[in-house]
């Protein structure tokens, strides 16, 4: 095994040198480093902070939902954030959902039920684009997985609105953002100090709201993250023990050969 193994280690080191470049090519090409944030749900062992998610839901409902849909989240899913069945029912009922056709053949409106999904602010993608200068605001359910550096990027974007540098040509109707690819984004800065009043009394700074809505959006993208990590720990522990035992049995069986 000697020389082959040594060669393997050497090759792996070569790979390690190239590794950081290859797998995140998109951001490397953009050249803008996305600052890393601390998240309660960071890999490998983090988990979601309930309070942050609830505040994030509030930010979504009061700020983002005016333009951004959340198509894959049903009201019943919100129980995962720590709400009771009653609270979820009440929250759902605040929404008006289109249903039908009824026996007369007409569509009608009714209060939301837990099984309903968050309604979209626009009837279809083209209406969304038309109402937003030609660029449809993306659905936010998966946004935390749909961008390189996911949560760090969302946070950076939300807090990255600033004055453009002196020599920068900002086009009509666009806003300068330090982290958006190309630096010109159709969305105006959505968060401002105190835009939301958190029921738990947390001061609604831009940083806080950005942090909380990002946590919420990481959950909408990966609702089973907590369950996955929990299962993962059990599986890894089992496997570590199991591997030791398999190796011991292997040594025992091979003893007379060696």
């Amino acid at each position: 095994m000697g020389s082959f193994f040594k060669g393997a280690v050497a090759a792996l080191l070569a790979t390690a040198l190239f590794g950081p470049i290859s797998l995140n090519s998109a951001s490397a090409a953009e050249g803008v480093a996305i600052p890393e944030q601390h998240w309660s749900f960071s890999a490998p062992f983090g988990s979601f902070d309930n309070e942050a998610r609830q505040r994030g839901l509030q930010v979504y409902r009061e700020v983002c939902s005016a333009c951004h849909s959340l198509d894959y989240i049903a009201f019943r899913n919100l129980e995962a954030l720590g709400y009771s069945e009653e609270q979820v029912k009440a929250l759902a009922a605040q929404y008006t959902i289109e249903d039908g056709p009824n026996d007369e053949g007409d569509m009608f409106e009714r209060p939301g039920k837990p099984s309903d999904y968050f309604p979209s602010p626009f009837p279809n993608a083209k209406a969304a684009a038309a109402a937003n200068g030609g660029a449809a605001p993306p659905d936010l359910s998966l946004i935390a997985k749909a961008r390189p550096h996911g949560p760090d990027y969302i946070y950076a974007l939300l807090t990255g609105y600033e004055e453009p540098p002196a020599d920068f040509q900002l086009m009509e109707g666009l806003n300068y953002n330090a982290y958006f690819p190309g630096h010109q984004i159709a969305m105006a800065a959505p968060l401002s100090e105190g835009a939301v009043e958190f029921s738990d009394g947390t001061p609604a700074t831009v940083d806080q709201m950005a942090h909380d809505v990002t946590t919420f959006l990481m959950w909408t993208a990966e609702p089973h993250l907590d369950a996955s990590r929990e299962m993962g720990i059990k599986v890894m522990l089992f496997l570590v023990v199991f591997c030791f035992m398999l190796y011991a049995v292997k040594r025992k069986i091979w003893h007379d050969i060696h």
Partner: peptide, 17 residues
């Protein structure tokens, strides 16, 4: 079997985390 166990360690690390 032992090799499979080690493989599953790497695989589980990626799948779950």
């Amino acid at each position: 079997a032992f090799g499979l166990g080690v493989f599953f360690l790497f695989f589980a690390w990626v799948v779950f985390f």
